[in-house]
Design a binder for these strands. Structure first.
Lengths: 253, 253
DNA sequence: GAAGTTATCGTCATGTTGACAATAAAGGTT
DNA sequence: AACCTTTATTGTCAACATGACGATAACTTC
């Protein structure tokens, strides 16, 4: 259905409302060997040709935002089923983001276990994981306002870990306390005392559930395998409801 | 500037990107005689004629989102200068929100001291404060998906009070601890112990600053007047930076 | 002046944190 | 097999924060 007349919410000028191209961008974060990484694509065309950018693309007619974000991510990363937790981060623009005109973008945040990115053909935009640290310190330049979006995403991710059980979104189905701690350390950029973290993680009601199984083959004493407790698991409609209370304290910056 | 061709971010179909009407809506909250209130307008036309809705309107060309939200709010509430703290809440749509077609809306949240709403002429949409409680319990019906947006806004407001100094955004420049406590009680919908709240509010470094002045004329012992500490005041670019740590604990639901 | 009201300061038991000792259970080394 | 290294897990303890309330202080109202 196309809207041909607007008689409501009429701007003072009494003209038809402006229409904007709307894109979704995704800040996909994961932890690879104890480092926080972000998924970026290399732009093959102007503007910002050769620069790195967040994966994303236009919202299509009849699509919702999360839907569009999931679709774009799946397309550009070359995966079928989206792993991890996807949520909306915030909207940017439409003014002054793109040299070619006003574009509104709705940024999203994906917290996911490490997954392999498909190496597409050479004519497609190449997606790959990049250490967040190296993106922030200027080793790489991001296109558009994607640096700011990344910064906002990081701040969101950091605080998510404090109050929600979403740290586990970076892990697989089952994980050890040490693996979960590595997530917190990578996202927060700090070191945490293993003993205190263990106490807090296992002692918080409604957070973790012991599987009864253990790791084997690694160095050191085998570790117990945990999974998210049912109350902490995301359910359709109520993503990640349960809250860590009191929060897992992040050391003061 | 009008965009006539898109050669980047090209959807698979290789057609020009869809364009959407984009609106901003504002959930304006305030505390009036110990009750949380929300600013709503009465719709004068279809759809949802006669129903209540959040103030809002179309984003204009060359406008940014916060700008548009501030403008719409000022227009519909009939105020010149926006009081309080305005921030983006999140985006909704574009699918299935409006019976007439896809519209993307970016919801915003305003936390403000009680301010008088201009009673515009009878041909304009009438804006007024409504107790949030009565909106939630079904006494009033909201248009579009505005009930959901209001619910999300409330959740955001509640958690904002825990970790940020934004409770003070509901108060004027100077306020007493009891006034601040009334804000927390109204937003959280709980009663707080005055003595413990006083201890926490005045004992949190970087939150409040004693003005040295006192109230007079009210019932009971005069109260000291406080203002936000400089570290907790919003500055252009860094809105409400300082964080309450540890947070002001909200009683478990 | 007495009573009522609100603000503010204290007290105390309980719970949480941060620092760190000690033990457990594996693999690797000699 | 005895030892060493590594990592996991269980405790201990002081410092601090919270929640529940007692006790005053300083006004207004009657």
């Amino acid at each position: 259905m196309t809207i041909t007349s607007y008689t409501w919410y009429m701007p003072a000028s009494h003209t038809a409302p402006e229409r904007f191209p709307v894109t979704v961008d995704v800040v996909a974060l994961t932890v690879r060997n104890s480092q926080l990484n972000v998924l970026l694509i290399t732009r093959l065309i102007e503007p910002f040709k050769g620069k790195l950018a967040l994966p994303g693309g236009f919202v299509l007619a009849g699509e919702d935002l999360l839907e569009a974000a999931g679709r774009e991510l799946a397309e550009e990363a070359g995966v079928e089923h989206l792993p991890g937790h996807l949520e909306q981060l915030g909207s940017y623009g439409p003014k002054g983001r793109d040299p070619r005109g006003d574009v509104l973008t709705v940024a999203h945040l994906l917290l996911a276990p490490d997954f392999p990115v498909l190496s597409a053909g050479s004519d497609a935009e190449q997606a790959a994981w990049y250490p967040v640290r190296e993106v922030l310190d200027g080793t790489y330049q991001l296109a558009f306002d994607h640096s700011r979006i990344l910064a906002d995403a990081l701040e969101r991710a950091k605080s998510k870990l404090e109050y929600s059980p979403l740290g586990a979104a970076f892990c697989g189905e089952e994980f050890t306390i040490a693996q979960l701690r590595a997530v917190y350390e990578a996202v927060w950029g700090t070191r945490l005392d293993p003993r205190n973290f263990h106490r807090k993680a296992t002692g918080t009601p409604g957070f973790l559930e012991d599987t009864g199984r253990m790791t084997a083959g690694d160095a050191g004493r085998p570790a117990a395998l945990f999974r998210l407790a049912p109350e902490a698991r995301p359910t359709p409609g109520h993503p990640a409801r349960a809250v860590l209370n009191p929060p897992l304290m992040r050391p003061r910056d």
